[in-house]
Each structure stands twice: as structure tokens, then as C-alpha cells.
Design a protein around this nucleic acid. Structure first.
Length: 250
DNA sequence: CTACTAATCCCTT
DNA sequence: AAGGGATTAGTAG
């Protein structure tokens, strides 16, 4: 578990709600149909991207998630050149080919789906996070996206959902942990400063045995737990459930 | 630098 | 074959 994640716990909300207003506000989105493809071509030609891409898909040693290493070479996967936009060589096709190389460098085309597309995707996701092929096809036609893009989107969205859930669980666990720590501290504190059961004042050394102290603490803890269970049962049954323990002072 | 996102790659089911 | 996990790469904040 990555504790760095806690920094973003408060961001648990649907993707669109997180990122769309930001990105939509801060950068110009393509306006209408034609959308992603047109955009991608335009973006590719941006300077920084071009420079990076020329260096990127050299033969590279990469390790996969199973610890295996393999060599990724430029011509290895046909997939890359298919997805997102088929017009990856777009306007600047020729000029970024390596001189003397017969294979064009692959580019990772950067684009965002439009707010409208995301909105539609989100609304379907709410109803069905796992659409079948027919649904995806229908959606892809409607949104002018490739079916692969729709598939990727849902896959990524499900992953995102899962990580959000994990973060949420992490935060709950952390709260519980903090609570237990505090409880532990106060118990330790109580053990250091024992109270006399007769007069209520500080107990004299040797007045109560260590074993008795432990028993008192344990009793208090058990009683507390019992009260909690009763309260919970009361909630569940819709009527108060009295604690079977008398309010004795041990 | 970190978080987010679209896409890729490989493995499992 | 489809889906999922890990990962990559481009970008915004």
C-alpha cells in the first residue's frame, strides 16, 4: 500500500467531476465531430512531442509486470499503429522518420476525449460498468470513437474505480488505526497512573497488583465492546438493547 | 513533481 | 477472445 495515496483521498469522485472541468477549462477542446482524430494530428505536430517521440521507440529493454524482461523494438506491435488515430503520420509524416531507417518511429498520440464524449461514457458507465460488445459498438458510433477506444475507456474507468475504492478503504483503515493508537496510549497512561478504587485518589504503590490493573483494563475494554455491540444491535433492531452487564464498579 | 488519462503489452480466465 | 494488471507517455496543475 502506498501511503502517498492518502494525499488524494479527498478526490474520490467520478473522473469527469475531477478532471474534466479542469482540463476543459484550461485547454481548448476540439469542437465537433471529427474530434479526436483531428485533434491528435494537430497535437502531434507540437514541438516538444515531436522531439520526444523521435527518441522514444528505439529498441528498449523493458520489464513487464511479471518481472520478465524483453526487448521492445519498433516493429514489434502492430497494435500501436492502429489505435486512437489511424492517421498517426498525419501532417508531419515524412519529416520525423529516421534518416536511413526503413521503419517510422512510433508515436504515442496524445489526445483527450471531449467533455461530451466523456459525459456519455460516464452516464453509460453508471448504468453498466461493463458493457458488452453491442453496447460498445453502439456507443462508439454515437460518439464517433473507435470501438477500441470505448473499450479502453471502460477498462481504464473500471481500474480507476477500483483504485478510488482502495483509497477510500485505506483512509478508513487509517482512521481506525489512529483511533486504536489513541486508545492504546490512554490505556498505557492509565496503567502508569493507577487510581485508587476506594478513595478515587492516586493509588499507592503496591495498593493494586499489576495483575489487577490488567484485569481492570481488560474488563473496561470488554464492557466498552459490549456496549458498542448493544448499541449496534439496537440500531439494527430499531429498539434499544440494554447491556446485560450491571453497572458495577468491578 | 504528482496526478490523471489514453493507450499498450502481456498474462489469465 | 476478452478482460485485467502493470506500464508507458503526454499533459495539466
Amino acid at each position: 500500500m502506498n501511503f502517498g495515496d492518502f494525499a488524494t483521498i479527498n478526490k474520490i469522485m467520478p473522473t469527469a467531476a475531477i478532471s474534466q472541468p479542469i482540463s476543459a477549462a484550461s485547454k481548448p477542446m476540439f469542437s465537433s465531430a471529427g474530434l479526436s482524430l483531428a485533434l491528435q494530428t494537430g497535437m502531434e505536430n507540437r514541438q516538444g512531442v515531436e522531439e520526444i517521440n523521435n527518441n522514444n521507440y528505439q529498441d528498449t529493454i523493458i520489464s513487464n509486470n511479471h518481472g520478465n524482461k524483453r526487448v521492445r523494438s519498433r516493429d514489434e506491435d502492430g497494435e500501436m499503429s492502429r489505435s486512437g488515430s489511424d492517421n498517426m503520420d498525419g501532417g508531419g509524416s515524412g519529416d520525423d522518420l529516421d534518416a536511413g531507417s526503413d521503419k517510422p518511429p512510433r508515436k504515442k498520440r496524445y489526445h483527450r476525449h471531449t467533455p461530451q464524449q466523456i459525459q456519455e461514457l460516464e452516464s453509460l458507465f453508471k448504468e453498466c460498468p461493463h458493457p458488452d460488445e453491442k453496447q460498445r459498438l453502439e456507443l462508439s458510433k454515437r460518439l464517433n470513437l473507435e470501438t477500441r477506444q470505448v473499450k479502453f475507456w471502460f477498462q481504464n474507468r473500471r481500474t480507476q474505480m477500483k483504485t478510488q475504492l482502495e483509497r477510500h478503504e485505506n483512509s478508513i483503515l487509517r482512521q481506525e488505526n489512529d483511533k486504536l493508537r489513541a486508545e492504546n496510549m490512554s490505556i498505557k497512561d492509565a496503567m502508569r497512573n493507577p487510581i485508587c478504587t476506594n478513595c478515587g485518589g492516586p493509588a499507592m504503590i503496591g495498593e493494586i497488583s499489576l495483575e489487577e490493573q490488567h484485569l481492570r483494563i481488560e474488563n473496561a475494554r470488554i464492557k466498552d465492546e459490549l456496549d458498542r455491540v448493544c448499541a449496534l444491535a439496537g440500531k439494527f433492531l430499531g429498539r434499544p438493547v440494554p447491556s446485560p452487564m450491571p453497572n458495577s464498579s468491578l
